[in-house]
Design a protein around this nucleic acid. Structure first.
Length: 464
DNA sequence: AGATGCGGGCGGA
DNA sequence: TCCGCCCGCATCT
């Protein structure tokens, strides 16, 4: 398997995952560059861009979910779970609004699924593939998905627009009649009152009253677990009290707050390190393993963690599943909250068994990839496509762009890096072992995906 | 108006 | 040094 891993790590992605709208846990996926959702770095979770000072890796952190402070039950038995506005200002405005169902305050449940911090997602374009890596297990309900939010908005807009028009028309006619009736002729004095009707009506509509069920545009993703709305309401941009969860993933408040612990199945050995030396120290899952040399890095440190470390390159490596070192601390033992509903496979654990390595595509920071690469152009091996401001980011020879131009060379270098990393791993220093990434490679069992092509490439994790 | 990205900068660990 | 996060700016829908 060692050779297999090396082989895999040194190869171009030979299989891709179907887009995962609700990635959860310490997972990693590889999408085709043609995958629109991946290109847009979309996620069902409300993720906001977070500055990791790394021009090659886009990092996003979860904003959590907005719920009714009183956790009221909607008419359909579900609970309000709004999508937090991504824009800070918009989110502040959103939080000032009230529950459309019970008028109590709205509450933003922050995500603390990654060592007490928000779950983070990392994206990197690698010429021929878009690599995705997630850190953390969402400890809150799913918010309304982006597509649902957009669909609802457009539906509401449409509805408001049409009702506004029809109401306006109706009211105008009615007022006209009234005016005419009361005065026997049209009276301009009534203009003001005549014009208020429509506005008031629209406000009412905007404040949470359900709009008759209607169909929404088809979403790009048909996640069977995602919440759907069959009606819409909102306060400006807030609530849709009619979420429906065709799945058991309905948020249920936990005693003492929203802190779900880690599902038991997540806390036990699931992702044994491929290199057992790493087992002692829960390693930090390194997204795309962007772990690597720091941008000032003079040394090749293939697993110098971080997808999110600042200014470094990525590299495609292979990796086995480990838990994130710091991911275990704050997470408490859990009683299998309904939210997880057993849909969450073990993706990491503190007790890792060396027997079940999960296939990992590790991207070290030695890869010279920048978002410019998204523009099918210049990504050229050894060229500084990173950015002019940080030339140091783009000069390393270990750079690798998945053979965009010189695959053969890249492969070799990748292998070199892999080897270096492996050597290092076999000789774990007291400081960096946790930086080794340990991710499940592949979609969550609970998620739907359809275009796997090379699942045979996936190493057994022993968990599935 | 918001979603998204980028990147400067700050502060804690 | 790493990382979370705030903030402003720019672009796009």
């Amino acid at each position: 398997t060692y050779n297999q891993l090396i082989l895999f790590w040194c190869s171009e992605p030979k299989h891709f995952d179907g887009f995962q709208e609700w990635p959860d846990g310490y997972v990693r996926f590889i999408y085709r560059v043609e995958e629109k959702n991946a290109q847009r770095h979309l996620s069902g979770w409300a993720m906001r861009n977070t500055n990791n000072h790394n021009c090659q890796i886009l990092k996003k952190s979860c904003l959590g979910v907005v719920v009714c402070a009183r956790n009221c039950t909607l008419t359909d038995g579900t609970r309000l779970q709004l999508r937090p506005a991504i824009c800070d200002k918009a989110r502040q405005k959103q939080q000032k609004k009230v529950c459309p169902n019970c008028n109590s305050a709205l509450e933003l449940i922050p995500c603390r699924g990654h060592s007490g911090y928000p779950v983070t997602n990392f994206w990197r374009l690698d010429g021929k593939a878009i690599f995705f890596q997630a850190k953390g297990v969402h400890d809150h309900p799913r918010p309304e998905s982006k597509s649902e939010t957009e669909a609802r908005r457009s539906a509401i807009k449409k509805q408001v627009s049409s009702s506004h028009l029809s109401q306006k028309k109706r009211l105008l006619e009615s007022e006209t009649r009234r005016c005419l009736d009361s005065n026997g002729h049209f009276n301009n004095i009534h203009h003001l009152s005549c014009m208020e009707g429509p506005e008031k009506f629209s406000n009412v509509t905007d404040n949470g009253f359900p709009i008759p069920a209607q169909s929404y545009p088809a979403f790009q993703n048909t996640d069977p677990y995602k919440a759907t709305y069959d009606s819409a309401s909102f306060q400006g941009e807030t609530a849709s009290p009619f979420q429906k969860y065709p799945n058991p993933r309905i948020f249920l408040p936990r005693p003492g707050g929203y802190e779900f612990g880690v599902p038991s199945y997540l806390s036990s050995s699931s992702y044994p390190p491929f290199y057992k030396d790493l087992t002692n120290t829960p390693v930090d899952t390194d997204p795309l393993n962007l772990t690597g040399p720091q941008y000032n890095g003079n040394t090749l440190n293939a697993y110098d963690k971080n997808f999110d470390s600042r200014h470094h390159r990525l590299k495609v490596l292979g990796k086995t599943g480990y838990g994130d070192r710091s991911d275990h601390g704050p997470i408490q033992a859990n009683t299998n909250p309904p939210y997880f509903s057993g849909e969450y496979p073990c993706r990491y654990g503190s007790n890792l068994s060396p027997a079940a390595p999960a296939l990992q595509t590790v991207i070290t920071t030695t890869t010279k990839v920048s978002y410019q690469a998204y523009k099918p152009s210049v990504v050229k091996y050894s060229d500084n496509v990173c950015n002019i401001k940080n030339p140091q980011n783009c000069t390393r020879i270990e750079e690798n762009i998945s053979g965009t131009v010189h695959p053969e060379i890249k492969v070799q270098e990748d292998c070199d890096v892999v080897k270096a990393a492996l050597l290092y791993q076999h000789d774990p220093g007291p400081t960096k072992s946790e930086q080794v990434d340990t991710y499940q490679y592949g979609p969550n069992p609970g998620n739907n995906y359809s275009e796997h092509e090379g699942q045979s490439f996936r190493f057994e994790s022993g968990e599935y």
